[in-house]
Write a protein that binds this DNA or RNA. Structure first.
Lengths: 145, 145
DNA sequence: ACTCAATAATTGAGGGGTCAACTATTGATG
DNA sequence: CATCAATAGTTGACCCCTCAATTATTGAGT
């Protein structure tokens, strides 16, 4: 095992550790789960969005989307109705209450990001974004494996 | 919202996406969950390790460690016994079968890492490790929040 | 000695995500 | 027009993780 292999192993360990904690920390800091907030963010424009579109943009499972939306609906944050032109589809929309609350969440979210990136300077941010983007890409292309 | 804020938001989204997938992908590729493999890795030396030590090194919850070890024990990968000098503690040790299997897992793990980092060059790897290390640190210091 | 606080491990509840199986609805094809 | 495949969403089973409450054991202080 070369020295570089060693660092690579460490990267995986770090990534695992980070991933184990981040969701929980995010929710603890902001008061809402990161996936839920991403859903609300997608709906921010105020227009109706198809559930399948949300699923693709947030990039989580169908089942997860269904459960999040059901919960968000129960909390009065979103409204859902079937597409009259195609009863298979569901339209989702931010409720007035949701629109009101999301502003607060956004602020908390920004605070959270600032916390995580607090010692990163302006040059490092885009590099980090690039690294993450590439890893995300590399991790998702192995559909055949 | 400045342009930089925008990239920061994107980083969080990427991180979330990556974190959502990585555990599952890892297990799918290697045949074992990343946490379990880290546990086995800690035991690789062949000596008995206290369960509480494992918990600290792997950095997951007590409850999670207990469940992983119970399962690994059921699979015959590890052996557990109470510390005769302090019955609160538990010693964990890799079984012969575990020792045998872990080699294969290590290879799969390295393949997985290579897959994720396949377009990273030698200069980028340590930078990425540093970034992750810092984020991990930043995320864990907010115990008061 | 006896009580009381600290430590280790376990269990239960709850939240996140995945996959697989199932229903309903649509649309295309013979 | 009837059938059959594709699409959207739902539900169940299962894995991972956290926190909180509980049990057992130890050690320290009166």
């Amino acid at each position: 095992m070369t020295r570089n292999d060693c660092t690579e192993q460490q990267i995986l360990t770090l990534l695992n550790g980070l991933c184990n904690k981040i969701h929980h920390k995010f929710e603890h800091c902001t008061g809402i789960s990161s996936s839920r907030l991403e859903i609300l963010h997608e709906l921010c424009g105020g227009i109706e969005v198809k559930q399948s579109m949300l699923q693709k943009h947030i990039n989580i499972d169908n089942a997860a989307i269904t459960r999040h939306l059901k919960q968000l609906e129960a909390e009065g944050m979103v409204t859902r109705r079937k597409n009259p032109d195609d009863n298979r589809e569901t339209f989702v929309r931010l409720s007035d209450e949701g629109l009101e609350k999301i502003e607060g969440y956004k602020i908390e979210k920004e605070n959270f990001i600032r916390q995580i990136l607090k010692d990163f300077d302006d040059k490092e941010i885009p590099i980090l974004a690039d690294f993450l983007e590439r890893m995300k890409h590399n991790i998702s292309i192995n559909k055949e494996l």
